[in-house]
């Protein structure tokens, strides 16, 4: 099992970690989740017989792990909101993560993209990260997400449009404030 782990680590670790990091926007959480990915992969590695590429399989597991994490967070948040009876005003509670070091040193535009990426839907976020940050092809992205190529294209188009709109509106707000 150790050999399998080391081989996977060498080939894919930094890519998987980066993907998880951009999905959850928190280094510590990404560190935990990447462990979860290996646990799932090592447990079912024997049943993977190369029916899809190893790389897309690993990304697919990583995405499921991230989505599971989001679900758990949403459940926790809902319980909290229900408890304090502020469900309807939930939008007032933005859970902003501190900007990580790697992003903080970048120019404003990159910071903005990073910020608004987190406002996209989970699906849109997955497509954008896989396509442009991880540089996967449309076909590979479709394999990771278990979607058709055309669904990837449509989601990518909508995600880019949403991101562009948010950025333009964000700029507008800034200008008005000035």
């Amino acid at each position: 099992m150790k050999d399998v782990f080391h081989e996977l680590y060498q080939k894919y670790h930094q890519d998987l970690f980066q993907f998880l990091f951009y999905m959850v926007k928190n280094r510590e959480i990404a560190e935990d989740l990447v462990q979860e990915v290996y646990i799932k992969v090592l447990k079912s590695y024997h049943s993977f017989e190369g029916k899809s590429s190893e790389k897309t399989w690993l990304f697919s597991v990583a995405r499921h792990v991230a989505i599971d994490y989001f679900r758990k967070q949403k459940r926790k948040k809902k319980r909290f909101l229900d408890y304090f009876d502020i469900g309807e005003k939930a939008y007032l509670l933005q859970d902003e993560q501190p900007i990580p070091e790697e992003i903080a040193v970048q120019n404003d535009e990159i910071k903005q993209v990073y910020h608004y990426l987190g406002r996209c839907t989970d699906d849109q976020q997955s497509v954008i990260i896989l396509r442009f940050i991880q540089s996967l092809s449309i076909q590979e992205t479709a394999e990771v997400l278990g979607w058709s190529v055309s669904k990837v294209k449509t989601t990518q188009h909508r995600a880019m449009k949403a991101l562009k709109t948010m950025m333009l509106e964000g700029e507008g707000v800034k200008r008005e404030a000035k």
Binding site: H6, Q18, R27, I110, M160
Partner: peptide
Amino acid sequence: LQSLLEQMPKIQDHQSPDAL
């Protein structure tokens, strides 16, 4: 926008493989 996304910084994990 696509070019900005492609310029997003590379994020590295600093955990050692053995510890992991």
